[in-house]
Computed example of a mutant assay.
Amino acid sequence: MSSQTRFIKSVVAASKSDLPEMPWTRGRRRAAFIAKRSGAPLKKAA
């Protein structure tokens, strides 16, 4: 299987999935990275 065929198959499979993963659902590690990058203080969960 060529790389182009594999890529097209992965794109089609991703488009058929119900919901793509949204950036804000990726967890605390990503939130910490974004807060560090923007200089904003990180909110801690209660």
Rank of each mutant, 00 (worst) to 15 (best):
R30P: 05
R28C: 02
A40V: 00
P23W: 00
R29G: 02
A35F: 00
S15I: 04
T25N: 06
S17Q: 06
E21I: 00
S2G: 07
R26C: 10
P20M: 00
R6I: 11
R28Y: 06
F7H: 12
P23H: 02
L19Y: 04
E21L: 02
E21S: 08
R37S: 14
S10T: 15
A40T: 00
A35Q: 06
V12N: 09
K9E: 11
K36S: 11
K16Q: 08
R29N: 05
A32E: 13
S3F: 13
P23M: 09
Q4N: 12
G27R: 09
A46P: 11
K16H: 10
A46Y: 07
K16G: 13
A14E: 04
T5W: 13
P20K: 03
L42H: 02
T5C: 14
R28P: 08
A13M: 11
M1F: 11
S38V: 00
R6F: 05
I8W: 01
R37W: 02
P20Y: 02
I34K: 10
K9W: 03
S3Q: 14
G27S: 11
S2D: 13
A32G: 11
V11P: 06
S2V: 03
T25I: 00
Q4P: 06
K9A: 10
A31M: 04
P20V: 02
K44E: 08
G39Q: 01
F33D: 10
L42A: 03
M22K: 15
V11Y: 10
A31D: 11
L42I: 02
